[in-house]
Nucleic acid binder design. Structure first.
Lengths: 128, 128
DNA sequence: CTACAACCTGTAGCGACTACAGGAGCAAGG
DNA sequence: CCTTGCTCCTGTAGTCGCTACAGGTTGTAG
């Protein structure tokens, strides 16, 4: 399996895969004689793990930690749940924040009568 | 009022104020004889406007447009409400996405018994 | 033999800051 | 008068997580 296949299989951009290798989130891929990268099923699983973690909002530092943990099956999973817990809290505070943004935006828009800028509640609200 | 005062008054980092000037979101500030920037109340209001818009999640391109609109009181505020409407939709889809992340994180965490990585639901969920 | 696709490395760009380095100006205390 | 320390200046580089080239090689199909 070469990089294009992996890219399609995992739904991750080729450039992103090379980027992950460059920064060491993925190990240096094995090469064919022509210099092209080859990947195993294991590599694909690792990339899937990364992608899923990224989709859940973990940053690459967290991903590194989670990957390292995953490779020590006998270690305590305390670290993993601590990271997930922190991420959950971050997500919850982002939700709360976005909900208040939504409220303010909605208020701005319902008060705007679509007239002239001088009377526009959207602009006025931003000046408040 | 010099830059430090404005920074404290508006709650915006000094470097950020200079950055806004550099990219033209703020006009080039008037200078004292010694070369230091001076700001008026008007400048402070403009910065407040920017900050508020940024807090609402508008990007600097939107901010530029909103600032330009604000300075044409007789123009139609249609553009302003279109931008706010788009922002509202973006906020709503971010909320939806974060709510599903929260659900998945919560599920991961409630299933994790804080044992060993090999049985950890957090790690397992990321592999799924 | 010629296209053209897929790959390679290396570097630069994005947005919105943030953090220096290296210097100048200014007020207060000794 | 001199030093200390604060604020300011410009200019450049770093952050994060990619993404997009440029310029080259290799492989495949007609």
């Amino acid at each position: 399996m070469q990089i294009g296949d992996l890219s399609r299989a995992a739904g991750v951009n080729i450039e992103t895969i090379r980027y992950y290798e460059r920064i060491g989130v993925l190990p240096r891929a094995a090469r064919q004689v022509n210099g092209r990268r080859t990947y195993s099923q294991d590599d694909a699983r690792r990339l899937g793990f990364i992608r899923h973690a990224r989709d859940l909002g973990f940053d690459l530092a967290d991903v590194r930690t989670l990957l390292a943990l995953q490779e020590q099956p006998e270690a305590s999973c305390e670290d993993a749940s601590r990271i997930a817990q922190a991420q959950l809290e971050a997500v919850e505070s982002r939700i709360a924040r976005l909900q208040s943004l939504r409220a303010e935006l909605t208020r701005m828009l319902t008060e705007c009568q679509n007239g002239v800028v001088a009377q526009c509640r959207v602009i006025e609200a931003l000046n408040g």
